[in-house]
Design a protein around this nucleic acid. Structure first.
Length: 971
DNA sequence: TTGTGGTGT
């Protein structure tokens, strides 16, 4: 008898199951459609759902289609004209001349005559230049879109493309036959095979193309596939498309392929951004395979340390961070005709900044020549659409989606202090940051205070630095008559246009997942998780793995232990349990175990994970999810200037995401360890990262890309003024900004480095003549940039052995120089990386990352310093003098993270130089238990106590020397 | 005397 059954009854006040079966059997994509609950174990009699369209008629080339093609041609000509004008005008402009209209026309005619005839010459010419065989010739054949003539016309009255799944629910809930037998499909099947590519020598092997043809079948089954035409039409009519595509809709792989042949592409690349590297790489692989091309040629990717793209690349997947980096050299993103922002709902700082830049470009410098697609989950669609509408959605109503936009904004918010008012929906649409007199007064008070305390920095002056007047241009005339028609009819006809934004909702492919909530509030969710896991295991059939969401490594390892102890007591008839932890700090080899089937036949995987499994990792085989309702989230407290990790209740979208993990391979079930009322009280969406973190890096990114007025930048969610102020202060104190708030030459160099501003400052300081320790500092900075370089001992027995192995790196100066010793020791050992790491208890994976980062930093630095030798083996030994120079360089970036010895007799205690806060040397530091005059530390963490991690001994006069004027007084 | 969610340049 398993120990849990008894516990379960006790845990419930009513003496029943802890869980009340929710009366709703929710389908992830249609929550609003309650369905009667059938028996828990009864298998639904439905097939895997596929959201396929109802029959769509394939028409011959209709008048409308012909007109559309004409419009497309006209469009291409327009872009070509614009480019011709730009190209022609620029040399003249440089010479201070103005080109006359006549000159312009002459040039234009000359260009046209140079082409092989017709008004489409420019377009043809460009196509040839691209040498993309699949696109050669006009009209461009849609090699990969055999349904291109199918009639999913967005301007077809009676169809509501905004709700593409409406009226198709039968298909959606699992009647694939309906779609497969549709006339549209047979029409597609009857189409002639794709024409063979013509043009330059065949670089694509027949094998690649054969494989692509095989993949074509599964492409056609994707829910998004039938909507290709609607999607294309949206982007012909509007420059911005906000698309809600649910999990499994195929949006990420298909969007690029749908748009390749569009005339507005004008030979330029389509960028698709991702928040994660793996996603960018895998998507590129898949799309290259589907298109039958070699990865890195027409389809490629670009992520840190790995660039597989070329001049030929027309669909490029890249991380949002990489796009931001590209924007340093190319602020207008001239090489792209279209930027697709995928997973926009995740609201990472990178994605948010990219969206801000794109909004500015699409209504400004790139008006008419840039298409923007935002792909997001349900919850954020309104936010995104309003943000991208040229007038912030003012006076525009999204039919059916936001009928009472004003009403729902009156939801009362909870706490005043901690909740960020800017985060509420309604403020998203605000045109500029509101500056009522009250705010202004407050700000002025702050300014006075700052002046008094720190002497001399006028932070408000920094904030209020040059404020370009935002350009206001009227909504462009829609190119589609139908779009115009729809707007005029005032909501009678539903067209997917929300002012200047097109809006599309594409259904996904998810199996139904049943939601269960706790009947009463849960006190100890670890204990209840444990019971629930056994309850599921004993009452639910195999196959079906269990995924348990917890908050951290510690919880996971503890629960794993408990489960294993009790799993041993399971009877032999019961399936066995295979318990696996999953969190980011776990070595890859162990992480990968979750992808493998359980080692024995009658065995169920129980995966205990952090929110890594919410987005980053998809575990196969999962049918049951346990959601504890909490997660660790970073929080920035601007008053203290500190980031900390806090266990926080998750948001509703997060809960739905977790639940969705049960429905990837079949109908599933999710146990939420909190009441339904508690769920209803959760925030709708997770607070965007930009409101939770230190924004100094983000501000430097803005400044370096020419946005001086960082307060009035187009943020989807503007950070608190306090956070901005803190960031500006930090950048100013590091010398990245001048008194006028503008970026300094030093700041520009810092922005180019892939490092947090203080570390970037350190690196640049080391290049100074008096410091002269760049190679050493590069080593230390790179070592500090990797996580878990020195993992804790795998077992207590090995602790002594570990300490002995690491003994040779010890340096009296502290952890920074210890890291340098470690790196030197590896460099001079001549051993293979893996063996060396194992012998010294250094993380192999972290060390590989270290090597990559170091190489990248060296490349950046080579331009700073011509005569630097990077040969570590030939370098001087780490003399006390060299160590001192290294630490002094660190103080240039970390003077604000220094502390002096605390009261006598308390060894590890220090008081921060700024703010006089108590900090303790972290026990993992080699300075632990040692008393020094002062320390510089790399990181402040608050766990059981405030700790300073990665500490080194410094002298107070060094601190004073390295600090800017206003800090000196504090030392 | 510790051991922090997840990303990214």
């Amino acid at each position: 008898m398993p120990p849990f059954a008894d516990g379960l009854t006790k845990a419930s006040p009513k003496g029943g199951n802890v869980f009340s079966l929710s009366s709703k059997k929710k389908r992830a994509s249609e929550k609003e459609k309650p369905k009667p609950l059938k028996g828990i174990l009864k298998k639904p009699a439905q097939q895997p759902p596929q959201n396929s369209p109802s029959a769509e008629e394939a028409k011959p080339l209709s008048n409308r289609e012909r007109k559309r093609q004409e419009r497309a041609k006209a469009w291409a000509a327009k872009i070509a004209e614009r480019e011709a004008a730009e190209a022609a005008a620029s040399p003249k402009k440089a010479a201070g001349e103005q080109m006359t209209d006549i000159e312009f026309l002459q040039r234009k005619r000359a260009r046209q005559e140079a082409g092989s005839g017709g008004g489409n010459a420019n377009q043809k010419k460009r196509r040839k230049e691209e040498s993309f065989p699949l696109l050669d010739g006009a009209p461009a054949p849609r090699v990969f879109s055999p349904n291109s003539t199918s009639a999913t016309e967005s301007n077809d009255p009676g169809v509501n493309p905004m709700f593409l799944n409406k009226g198709k629910e039968k298909g959606a809930t699992g009647n694939p036959g309906a779609s497969q037998n549709s006339r549209a499909d047979s029409a597609r099947a009857a189409m002639p095979p794709p024409p063979k590519p013509v043009g330059p020598p065949q670089v694509h092997s027949a094998q690649l193309r054969r494989h692509a043809l095989e993949l074509e079948k599964s492409r056609q089954k994707l829910p998004i596939y039938p909507h290709a035409d609607t999607l294309r039409q949206c982007l012909r009519d509007r420059h911005v498309l906000v698309m809600m595509g649910e999990t499994g809709s195929g949006k990420s792989t298909q969007i690029g392929q749908f748009l390749v042949d569009e005339p507005w592409r004008a030979g330029r690349c389509i960028a698709i951004t991702q928040p994660r590297k793996v996603a960018a790489v895998n998507l590129a692989r898949r799309v290259a395979a589907e298109m039958g091309v070699r990865l890195g040629e027409e389809v490629g990717y670009n992520v840190r340390f790995d660039n597989r793209s070329s001049d030929k690349t027309i669909i490029k997947f890249l991380t949002d961070g990489m796009l931001l980096q590209e924007m340093l050299a190319d602020p207008k993103l001239k090489r792209y005709s279209c930027v697709v922002v995928d997973e926009a709902h995740e609201r990472t700082v990178g994605t948010d900044l990219v969206m801000g830049f794109l909004r500015k470009l699409v209504y400004g410098e790139r008006r008419g020549s840039l298409k923007v697609v935002i792909m997001s989950a349900t919850m954020e669609v309104k936010t995104m659409a309003r943000f991208f509408e040229e007038n912030r959605g003012e006076g525009v109503i999204i039919p059916g989606l936001m009928p009472e936009a004003s009403k729902e904004e009156s939801t009362p918010e909870a706490k005043e202090e901690e909740s960020t008012p800017e985060f509420k929906e309604e403020s998203v649409g605000s045109e500029t940051r509101p500056t009522p007199p009250e705010t202004d007064k407050k700000a002025k008070r702050k300014k006075k205070k700052k002046k008094k305390n720190k002497g001399g920095i006028d932070t408000m002056k920094l904030i209020r630095s040059p404020s370009p007047i935002p350009e206001r241009i009227k909504t462009p005339e829609p190119t589609s008559a139908a779009g115009f028609e729809a707007e005029r009819s005032g909501g009678k006809m539903f067209f997917p246009y929300f002012g200047t934004v097109a809006l599309l909702i594409v259904p996904g492919r998810q199996y139904p997942v049943e939601s269960l909530h706790a009947a009463a509030p849960v006190q100890d969710y670890i204990d209840i998780s444990f019971r629930t896991v056994f309850q599921i295991h004993c009452t639910h059939p195999m196959p079906g793995d269990i995924l348990v969401f917890l908050t951290g490594q510690d919880e996971i390892e503890n629960l794993k232990k408990t489960i294993l102890e009790h799993a041993a007591a399971l009877t032999k008839e019961m399936p066995q349990m295979h318990v696996l932890p999953l969190y980011a700090a776990l070595p890859f080899a162990q992480q990968n175990k979750v992808f493998l089937p359980a080692p024995q036949k009658n065995m169920r995987k129980v995966i205990l994970c952090t929110n890594i499994a919410e987005t980053s990792v998809t575990v196969p085989g999962v049918r049951y999810v346990v959601d504890c309702g909490k997660a660790k989230l970073k929080q920035f407290r601007p008053k203290l200037g500190l980031e900390s990790l806090l266990v926080t209740p998750i948001s509703q979208s997060s809960a739905l995401q977790r639940r969705g993990r049960a429905g990837r391979e079949g109908p599933g079930k999710c146990w939420h360890l909190y009441t339904e009322d508690a769920f209803n009280e959760l925030a709708q969406v997770t607070k965007p990262e930009i409101l939770r973190t230190d924004v100094s890096n983000a501000i430097l990114i803005l400044k370096a890309r020419g946005h001086d007025d960082v307060v009035n930048f187009d943020y989807l969610s503007p950070p608190k003024l306090e956070s901005l102020q803190k960031a500006l202060e930090q950048l100013y104190s590091l010398g990245a900004l001048g008194n006028d708030g503008k970026i300094t030459p030093l700041g520009k160099k810092m922005a180019k480095l892939p490092l947090a501003p203080p570390l970037a400052r350190v690196l640049l300081a080391a290049a100074d003549k008096d410091m002269n320790c760049l190679p050493e500092v590069v080593d230390v900075v790179a070592a500090l940039s990797v996580d878990n370089l020195l993992p804790p001992p795998p077992s207590e027995e090995l602790r002594e052995q570990m300490e002995e192995a690491r003994q040779r790196f010890r340096r009296a100066e502290g952890d920074h120089i210890m890291l340098l010793e470690l790196v030197r020791s590896f460099d001079s050992s001549g051993e293979k990386l893996k063996g060396w790491c194992e012998a010294h208890f250094v993380s192999h994976y972290a060390m590989k990352t270290f090597i990559d980062i170091r190489a990248q930093l060296r490349t950046y630095c080579s331009s700073l310093l011509s005569s630097t030798t990077w040969d570590s083996a030939a370098a001087e030994t780490i003399s006390p003098d060299l160590a001192e120079r290294v630490l002094k360089a660190f103080l240039k970036g970390f003077f604000h993270q220094t502390a002096r010895a605390g009261p006598e007799g308390r060894l590890g205690e220090y008081l921060t130089v700024l703010g006089h806060q108590n900090v303790n040397v972290h026990p993992a530091s080699i300075l632990f238990g040692k008393r020094k005059e002062a320390i510089v530390y790399h990181e402040y963490v608050f766990t059981t106590k405030p700790f300073a991690r990665w500490c080194s001994a410094v002298q107070l006069d060094w601190v004073a020397e390295a600090s800017p004027g206003w800090v000196k007084g504090e030392v």
